[in-house]
């Protein structure tokens, strides 16, 4: 089934215009939230320990459904991607968006051969605590612990969250001199990021 066909199928599944096979229960409240919250499963990783199911590094090469990643400690990691792997690069995207040199965080399950079967991959994602030093027509100029960062506004994607209210596309309440938190996609080997979400006080 192609991407559009799959979307149509899933739309019908959730909006109730077709009968589909549903795993477990599919209606709201079928899983008791309290029961879920009440469980206290065993810790997956010891406190302070390196997480075997997580990779932090830069993409060194691309293969068929695979990324080869080098971590800062020079260790190499093979990351296996499937259609069930979410890939984020400024917005949800596909594995095709990965480029050599991209920074990467990946979470999944470490297989016996050392490969990470990825559930989620975030490419070039950064989370910065900044001060807005100036605002231009297409970018925010940011101070990140004394380093200058240019945050590019991406029409249709960049959103702002003011004082915990729902995200909006209106960026006109951002103020020079105020602090902000920025989720964005770093442009490799530059001091520039494309802005996904800006958390700010209005």
């Amino acid at each position: 089934m192609d991407s559009l066909g799959r979307r149509r199928f899933l739309s019908k599944a959730v909006l109730g215009t077709t009968a589909v096979t549903v795993v477990g229960a599919s209606t709201i409240g079928s899983f008791a939230p309290e029961a879920v919250a009440g469980q206290r499963p065993k810790l997956d990783v010891e406190p302070g320990a390196p997480d075997p199911n997580f990779v932090d590094g830069r993409v060194r090469s691309l293969g068929k459904g695979e990324l080869l990643v080098t971590s800062a400690d020079r260790s190499m990691h093979r990351i296996h991607l499937t259609s069930a792997t979410s890939v984020w690069k400024l917005r949800p995207t596909t594995a095709d968006a990965a480029k050599v040199g991209d920074g990467l965080y990946a979470r999944g399950v470490r297989l016996p051969d050392g490969t990470l079967a990825a559930d989620a991959v975030w490419l070039n994602i950064v989370n910065l605590q900044v001060h807005i030093t100036s605002i231009g027509r297409t970018a925010l100029h940011l101070d990140h612990h004394g380093d200058r960062i240019v945050g590019h506004v991406v029409a249709g994607t960049t959103a702002a969250v003011y004082n915990s209210t729902p995200a909006v596309s209106d960026l006109s309440l951002l103020q020079v001199g105020k602090h902000a938190q920025v989720i964005g996609a770093w442009r490799p080997d530059t001091n520039e990021v494309d802005l996904a979400t800006v958390y700010a006080a209005a």
Binding site: A49, D51, D56, W186
Partner: peptide, 21 residues
């Protein structure tokens, strides 16, 4: 680390790692 995190270092305790808990 990579990107703007590159200058973050090991944090106040000196041993902080993005890949550790």
């Amino acid at each position: 680390a990579w990107g703007p995190c590159g200058s973050a270092g090991g944090g106040a305790c000196g041993n902080c790692r993005s890949g550790s808990r």
